Simulated scan of single mutants.
Amino acid sequence: MLGTARPGQPFNVTVIASDTADDPHRWQFTVRSVVCGKPLDPGVMAYAADSVGAPTASPTPEAGKQFCVLTMDAVNVGKSMAVWNADNRVSLNVADTRYTMSQKDSEYASDYAQYWNSRGQTAPTFGLNPGSKGPVHGIFQIPTGEKPTSVWVTSGTAITTIDGVQPGYFVRLT
């Protein structure tokens, strides 16, 4: 574990991958909120539907589950443009159970990135230059009635590899 934080408290993560070994990506993250049990943002969903020419849909979670929307700020504190998103790099935890985004949840998170990008807040999903800041959203489904206790933000390109769970920051929510 690289460290612990609380919502509103920034923490730094260095992401080293095979293609960034000579120039690792450095990020400062701040968890702003985790909201569970509410529908996904109707403005985001309407924007996503309009962009593909489909009727506005109101996504529903899997049976027995609720959506949880994680909102974080990301600042590129590195020396070059970098791309980052919560796919396979962030988990929302209920006690000792770890939830990551499904492929569909990742699509919803991408809808959030597109929506905020259209409003002038470029998400790191699309790349941020050094010193630039943007919103990160993660969409998770956890059992109805449960409350998340923590967020894990890894320093790797995936939460787990053949060597186990990657080092990262533990953000305590309760």
Score class of each variant (00 low, 15 high):
residue 91 S to V: 09
residue 97 T to D: 12
residue 65 K to M: 04
residue 163 D to Q: 13
residue 28 Q to E: 15
residue 73 D to V: 09
residue 170 F to G: 01
residue 5 A to H: 04
residue 21 A to D: 08
residue 65 K to N: 09
residue 40 L to C: 05
residue 25 H to V: 11
residue 38 K to A: 15
residue 118 S to Q: 07
residue 13 V to Q: 05
residue 71 T to F: 00
residue 166 Q to A: 10
residue 142 I to M: 01
residue 147 K to L: 09
residue 24 P to K: 03
residue 117 N to M: 11
residue 134 G to C: 01
residue 42 P to V: 05
residue 124 P to W: 12
residue 154 T to Q: 04
residue 167 P to N: 12
residue 12 N to A: 09
residue 114 Q to Y: 14
residue 161 T to I: 01
residue 163 D to V: 13
residue 23 D to Q: 14
residue 7 P to G: 00
residue 34 V to M: 07
residue 165 V to C: 11
residue 75 V to T: 15
residue 74 A to N: 05
residue 137 H to Q: 14
residue 51 S to P: 08
residue 147 K to N: 14
residue 44 V to L: 03
residue 49 A to D: 11
residue 110 S to K: 02
residue 95 A to P: 10
residue 72 M to S: 04
residue 152 W to S: 05
residue 115 Y to W: 13
residue 44 V to W: 06
residue 147 K to C: 07
residue 170 F to D: 15
residue 139 I to Q: 05
residue 103 Q to P: 01
residue 37 G to E: 11
residue 93 N to C: 06
residue 12 N to P: 00
residue 64 G to K: 02
residue 156 G to Q: 12
residue 93 N to M: 06
residue 1 M to S: 12
residue 169 Y to G: 04
residue 114 Q to N: 15
residue 122 T to R: 03
residue 57 A to S: 15
residue 83 V to S: 10
residue 170 F to V: 03
residue 41 D to I: 00
residue 152 W to Y: 15
residue 20 T to G: 02
residue 167 P to G: 07
residue 16 I to H: 03
residue 28 Q to I: 06
residue 36 C to I: 08
residue 70 L to A: 07
residue 103 Q to L: 04
residue 155 S to I: 04
